[in-house]
Amino acid sequence: MGRVTAYARQISWYWGSLMGDNHYRRYVEHRSRTHPGDPVMSERDYWRMRHDATERNPQTRCC
Rank of each mutant, 00 (worst) to 15 (best):
L18W: 11
L18P: 00
G20A: 08
V28M: 01
V4N: 13
R31L: 13
Y27F: 15
H35E: 13
W47I: 00
H35G: 00
S17N: 14
G16R: 11
E43C: 11
Q10R: 13
R26D: 07
N22D: 05
I11H: 06
T54W: 02
E55K: 12
M19L: 15
T34Y: 12
P36M: 04
T5S: 07
M49R: 14
E43I: 13
T54D: 00
E55Y: 03
P36N: 11
D45Y: 04
L18A: 03
Q10F: 05
A53Q: 06
S32V: 14
V4M: 07
W13M: 14
W15S: 04
D45E: 15
M1P: 06
Q10K: 10
R31C: 12
M41V: 04
G2E: 07
R26N: 07
T60M: 12
R50C: 07
E43A: 10
H23G: 00
S32A: 10
G2C: 06
R9W: 06
A8I: 12
R3M: 03
C63H: 12
Q59C: 13
S42D: 07
R50K: 11
A53N: 04
N22C: 06
T60H: 06
Y27T: 03
C62G: 05
I11L: 13
I11E: 08
M1I: 00
S32K: 15
N22V: 10
G16K: 12
P58Y: 05
V4A: 14
W13C: 08
R26F: 05
M19G: 00
A53F: 01
T60D: 02
T34P: 03
M19S: 06
R48A: 05
